[in-house]
Structures are given as structure tokens and as C-alpha cells.
Design a protein around this nucleic acid. Structure first.
Lengths: 273, 273
DNA sequence: CGTTAATTTGAGACCATTCAATTTCGGTGG
DNA sequence: CCACCGAAATTGAATGGTCTCAAATTAACG
């Protein structure tokens, strides 16, 4: 076992009758993993109108500079946020798995500050900004859940910044692999023996701020030293403890638990002004 | 003139009687610059209980790993978010000016994922997490304003990540100076002829992921080429257009305006479930 | 089985670091 | 006002991590 269980809380009020096949389930599951949502909150989320969509590898959901009026929830596959410098250099800013809400951040500002692209074939669901905001306005716990989700997003971005600024190539790659494996586990995608690493070495480079050539050499060293096996897109972690140490990885920044202190002061419905 | 006016909106409902000397004014001014707040929202914010505080240069507000139960609003001075690698290398993650809400992000998770430190002598106001969350629960527009503020925070972190990953030393320093000058202007601190640059070259390095030695050489080149004058902590921008070009800087990511599309669907009070 | 994408390899160049040592600056006490 | 101090800035030389630019090899796919 490479990752300990998340200890995710199931809200006591949670209806057992919720349909786990509902397309919005991954979203509500994710939000509920870090915020307490009452049965009313959850049913309000389940009743959000949405539109299905499929993305081919390489498809863009959003371009930097555009106006965005809906946010998309990822059901299967992997999406990336990215941004270009004025000279055309691309930086992958974050990677997203099942349940992640993408483009909420672009939908609440005037113009998108980053692009969103499919790394693999992906299934998504689009929720109109107005619908989501209305739900948040009517149910404070939903607004808070969106805030907490955004905060965790931001925490991950800060850790990436720490990596880009202060860690060397070997550490950056190891760290990224650790993060992906943990998050992939938490998203409910099992990865007992190996995982379909969706990123090319080129993309690993774009995510860590280095050349694909150098990514290649680093990966070779990691294989030589027995940390991972990586062949035919299949990533097998041979030495989880070693990889964590090599990547200076600890999972604190992923905020995998509901803050205990906040559980008592959660409210679930609108209150009189 | 080096920065154009922000075109900040004054909400039509805004009371003219608000006291601009109220200690929470900078906070409400900042939130109101990117979200529409009604008179009721604003007065709810003004009536938040708070506690004043003074920070000496170098003082820590929060340590990474601690539990945080209040967030602080910066009134004067400069604060930084920062994080250490396991090997002790420090990365400054963001810099904060008047009106910025710091530690909201640490207050809503189990343990702080980063530290907060005073870069200069600073005056702050602490607001207890419970009080702020209650206000957000009771007034959706306040919750949304906090969300938008966090989103902008996150956008800045992404731009820093882009810099760290894809721009060279000269560009990174130029870009950071551009950002600080613009934000400092927007925060209402005029900087007609020069600005008290609060960062040492060491800190400039920690913010851009480079050595103080190299920061020094880059700054010398920038002076030699006539972009800035920087003597005795005083920064004077001699060639704003040139500095922007050298730093690959555009202000989009700062989201300096209220998104027009959201103005129509703002609600100001609680609504029935 | 051909075509394109992805990975791998090599050598040289360069940007940035490291490690000292030196100089300047800002403030303090005599 | 000057001597002194620590912090910050500056300088130099050597090292090294990462990039650049090809070119070659392998894998993926219809």
C-alpha cells in the first residue's frame, strides 16, 4: 500500500439514496470531502442543471483572454491549466482529476487568466455560472465549499511555486509524481500496481519548468536508482518512501481532511439577516 | 504617469457617510473593488469585531503547520507568504499590501500550509474566523467577495509560477517590480516619483527563486540599461514601457476590474430556500 | 507497415550558483 | 561628529545544472 486512506467523512445527514451514477456525483463527492454539506445542500447541488461534454486529447475548454460563463466538472480523464509567456513558452499550472471543478476561477473574473486543455480523452459536465452562483447564494454551505475548494487549489499552486523556485530537477519530477499518485488515489481511482501516467515527457517538462530532454535524463536516473518503473505510459512506483524523500514530498498542502475546527460552525441553510 | 487609473466602481448604494478612517476601510475598499457590495453588506463588514496589532519587521503572523483561527487584514506595511522546502530553502509565495486579507486561506483549512511574515513594520487587524464566516453565511455577497478575492490571489500565484518556470532572471525581476508598482498604486499608495521598495536583494531572490548574488547582478544591468534607479531603498522607474516589455508584464492576471457580466446577477441579501 | 509522435543520446554553451572576500549603507553610542 | 557595528550590497572566479540543437532510435496507431 503506498498511500494511506483519506479518512474522508461521510456527513451523517447524507442520504443513502443518492445515485452514485449521477453525473454530478464526483463533484459533490469532492466538495463533500473537504466541507460539510447537509442533505439539503447536496440535493441542491444534485439538482443543478448541466450539460455533458467530451474532450479529445489536446482540446481546449478555455483560452486565456476569453470570457467564461460556465465552469466544468471533470468526470474522467485529465485536464490541465496552462499559460504562455509573451515569448510562447508554456507552463502547465495544475493538473486535474475526477471531481475537480475547473474554470470556476475563470468564470468569476472578467477574462480568463489561463487556458484549460484536455491532457487525455476526457468527459466533463458544464454548469452555467449563474446556476452555480445562485446555489451558492441560497445555501451558504455551498458557497463555503466552493471557497474551500478554491483555497486548496491555491495551496497546490503555492507548492508548485515552491518546487519551481527552490527544488532541483530530480526533486521536482519526484514531487510531481508523488502528488499525482496521492490525488489519483483520493479521487477514487485505484492505482494498486501502476498507473496510466497521462503526461508525456514534454508535458512533464512543461509542468516542472524544464526541457523534455532533461526530463528524460532525470527519469532515466530515477529508473536506474530503482524508484519507479515507467514503460509504455505505465507508471509503477517501486519505492514510495524513497520517492517521497527524493521529491521532498509531504501531503499537508493537499489538505486531504475536513478541518475539525470548522465542523462545529457549519450552517446548512439560509439565515435571516 | 506609469499606471493608468483602475476605473474602480463605487457601488451606487454606497453610503457617503462611511468613515474612511475606520480600520476596516482598507479591507472593504479592497473587497468592493472586485465585487459589488450593497450598503447592507458593507455595514455588516464594518461591524465585524476586530483586534489591532503591530508587527515588527521579521515578525511572523503564522507558521506553516500551525492551526489558524483568525485572519488578518493588512493596514500599512508589507507582508509576505512563504514556505520552506525540507532542506531549508525559502520561497516567498506572495507579497501583500494595504487591504489584503491574509490567512483567510490558512484559517479555512486544518493546518496552515504556509507562513506569513512581516517584510516591513506593519499594522494589521485580526478578525476571528467565526465572525467572518458568520458574515459570509448571512450575506451571500460577502461570501462571493471572499471567493473572488481568493481567486485573484490564486491568479497571482499562477503568474508567479509561470515566471518561476518559464522566465529568466532578468524577466522575473522586471516582472515582479512591475507587479508591485501596479498593485501599490491600486492599493491607494501613490508612487509618483519612486517608491520605498521594501525588499532586500536577498528577499527579491527568495521571491523569484534566485540567489541574492544574481539578483544583484541583474539589478545592476537594469540600472545600466536605464530601466530603473534603485538607491537607498528608493525605487524609481525610469522607463515603464521598457520595464514592462523586459518583464513580459501585462496586468490581466491582476484582475483589476469588476467583471461586468457578474454585476447583474449579484444579490445582496439572504434569500429563502 | 508506413507514418507520426515520443523517447533517447551526445556535445557544447550558457545561465545561474557557490563560496569567499570586500565594500557600502544605516544606525548607534561615545 | 566620528568611530564602530551589523546588515546589505557588491565583486570575482570557479563550478555545475540545465539548455540548445541536432540526430538517432523507439513506440504508437491506423
Amino acid at each position: 500500500m503506498i498511500v494511506q486512506s483519506t479518512g474522508r467523512l461521510v456527513p451523517p445527514q447524507g442520504k443513502a439514496v443518492e445515485d452514485p451514477n449521477h453525473l454530478l456525483f464526483p463533484l459533490i463527492d469532492k466538495l463533500g470531502s473537504r466541507s460539510l454539506l447537509s442533505a439539503l445542500d447536496r440535493s441542491a447541488l444534485f439538482s443543478l442543471p448541466y450539460q455533458e461534454g467530451t474532450l479529445q486529447r489536446g482540446d481546449y475548454v478555455t483560452y486565456e483572454g476569453n470570457e467564461v460563463d460556465s465552469c466544468c466538472v471533470l468526470l474522467t480523464g485529465v485536464l490541465s491549466r496552462q499559460k504562455l509567456t509573451g515569448f510562447g513558452a508554456k507552463q502547465i499550472l495544475s493538473l486535474h482529476l475526477r471531481g475537480d471543478i475547473i474554470d470556476l476561477q475563470n468564470a468569476l473574473v472578467e477574462v480568463a487568466d489561463h487556458s484549460v486543455q484536455a491532457v487525455t480523452l476526457a468527459k466533463v459536465v458544464h454548469i452555467r455560472r449563474e446556476a452555480l452562483l445562485r446555489a451558492a447564494d441560497e445555501r451558504p454551505a455551498i458557497a463555503r465549499a466552493l471557497l474551500v475548494d478554491t483555497i486548496v487549489d491555491c495551496s497546490i499552486a503555492r507548492e508548485w511555486l515552491l518546487s519551481a523556485g527552490q527544488r532541483n530537477a530530480h526533486q521536482r519530477i519526484s514531487h510531481l509524481l508523488c502528488e499525482l499518485v496521492v490525488r489519483e488515489r483520493d479521487a477514487g481511482l485505484r492505482s494498486e500496481h501502476g498507473w496510466d501516467m497521462p503526461l508525456t515527457q514534454e508535458q512533464l517538462g512543461e509542468a516542472t519548468g524544464m526541457t523534455s530532454v532533461h526530463v528524460n535524463r532525470v527519469l532515466q536516473r530515477m529508473r536506474r536508482e530503482g524508484f519507479v518503473r515507467l514503460e509504455a505510459q505505465k507508471l509503477v512506483i517501486l519505492d514510495w518512501a524513497g520517492l517521497q524523500a527524493a521529491g521532498d514530498f509531504t501531503d499537508t498542502y493537499l489538505h486531504r481532511r475536513i478541518p475539525v475546527a470548522l465542523q462545529g460552525i457549519c450552517r446548512s441553510g439560509p439565515v435571516g439577516g
